[in-house]
C-alpha cells in the first residue's frame, strides 16, 4: 500500500508539473458549465436540480478522460521509465494501481471544483441534496470506469495519440452498449442472452439510475467490476508488452 501511495503521489505531482493539469481542469469546468446552461437549459427548466449538469458528464468524459489516461503507460513505455519503475522493489500491481488512483484522484479534483454549480442551485431553490450527492458519486464511478479502460488502452501502445483514439472508441462502445448503434452489430448473429448481456454493460443506463438518486448496489458493483476488469487487463497487457 505504501508503494501505491508513493507512485500515486509522484504521478499526481507529474500532472501539475506541466500545464496539462491546469488546461484540463479549465476546459472541463468551462465545458461542464456551457453544457449545463446552454444545452441543458438550467434556468429555462425552472427546476431546482442538477440533472442538466450531470446528464452531459458521460459525453464530457468520453473525450476528456482519454486525454488524461492516454499518457498513463504509453509515455512510460516510450521514455523507458517503465523499466526503471518495474525494476524497483514494487509489484506490477502496485504500479498499475498507483497510476490509476492518481488519475482518478485528479478527476475527482476536477469534479469537486464544479461545486459553484451546487451552491448556485441551492441559492436558487431547494434541491434534493441527497440526489446531488448520489449523482456526484455516480459520476466519479463512471469516470473511474472510463479511466480503467483508458489505462488498458494506454498500456497497449507507446503512442499517446493511438492510446487516445483507442480509448475514445472503446469508451464510446461501453457508453452506448445498450443502444441500437452498438446492439445492431450483434443482432444478426448473436444469441439473445449475449445481446442482453452486452446491453447491460451500458455506462449510460447504470449512470442514469444513480444520477436520479438511486444508489443501487448492482450499479455500484457494475462500475467496480468494470474497473477491476480493465485494471487486470492493464496488468496482463503490461506483463506481455512492457519491454517491446
Amino acid at each position: 500500500m505504501h508503494h501505491v501511495v508513493t507512485i500515486m503521489k509522484r504521478e499526481l505531482a507529474g500532472y501539475f508539473a506541466t500545464p496539462v493539469a491546469y488546461v484540463f481542469i479549465l476546459i472541463f469546468l468551462l465545458l461542464a458549465a456551457a453544457f449545463t446552461f446552454y444545452l441543458g437549459g438550467f434556468y429555462e427548466r425552472g427546476q431546482a436540480d442538477l440533472a442538466p449538469f450531470f446528464n452531459f458528464h458521460p459525453w464530457l468524459y468520453l473525450f476528456l478522460i482519454p486525454a488524461i489516461s492516454m499518457r498513463l503507460w504509453a509515455e512510460e513505455r516510450k521514455s523507458g521509465a517503465i523499466e526503471l519503475l518495474l525494476t524497483q522493489p514494487v509489484t506490477l500491481w502496485q504500479a498499475v494501481l498507483g497510476k490509476f488512483f492518481a488519475a482518478w484522484a485528479f478527476t475527482a479534483l476536477a469534479l469537486a471544483l464544479t461545486f459553484p454549480i451546487w451552491i448556485t442551485v441551492n441559492y436558487l431553490g431547494s434541491p434534493d441534496n441527497g440526489v446531488i450527492v448520489a449523482a456526484y458519486i455516480g459520476s466519479l464511478l463512471m469516470a473511474g470506469g472510463f479511466l480503467a479502460i483508458g489505462s488498458c488502452m494506454s498500456a497497449l501502445t507507446r503512442n499517446q495519440v493511438v492510446a487516445f483514439i483507442l480509448s475514445v472508441v472503446v469508451c464510446f462502445a461501453f457508453l452506448l452498449a445498450g443502444f441500437p448503434l452498438v446492439l445492431d452489430a450483434f443482432h444478426a448473429w448473436a444469441p439473445q442472452p449475449l445481446i442482453d448481456a452486452i446491453a447491460s454493460l451500458s455506462f449510460l443506463t447504470h449512470f442514469e439510475s444513480i444520477s436520479k438518486g438511486v444508489l443501487d448496489l448492482r450499479d455500484l458493483v457494475y462500475f467496480a467490476l468494470t474497473m477491476a476488469f480493465f485494471l487486470i487487463a492493464t496488468a496482463i497487457v503490461l506483463d506481455v508488452r512492457k519491454s517491446e
Binding site: 508503494h3 508513493t6 507512485i7 509522484r10 505531482a13 507529474g14 508539473a17 506541466t18 521514455s79 523507458g80 521509465a81 523499466e83 526503471l84 525494476t87 524497483q88 522493489p89 514494487v90
Partner: peptide, 25 residues
C-alpha cells in the same frame, strides 16, 4: 540497476526524482 539509456522522469527535479526512488527503496 541502471537501465539502458538511463531513463527517468523528465518533468521531475533531480532531487525530487531521487527522493521518489528513495521512497520506493
Amino acid at each position: 540497476y541502471l537501465p539502458e539509456g538511463a531513463p527517468s522522469y523528465g518533468e521531475m527535479s533531480v532531487r525530487g526524482f531521487l527522493g521518489f526512488i528513495a521512497d520506493l527503496r
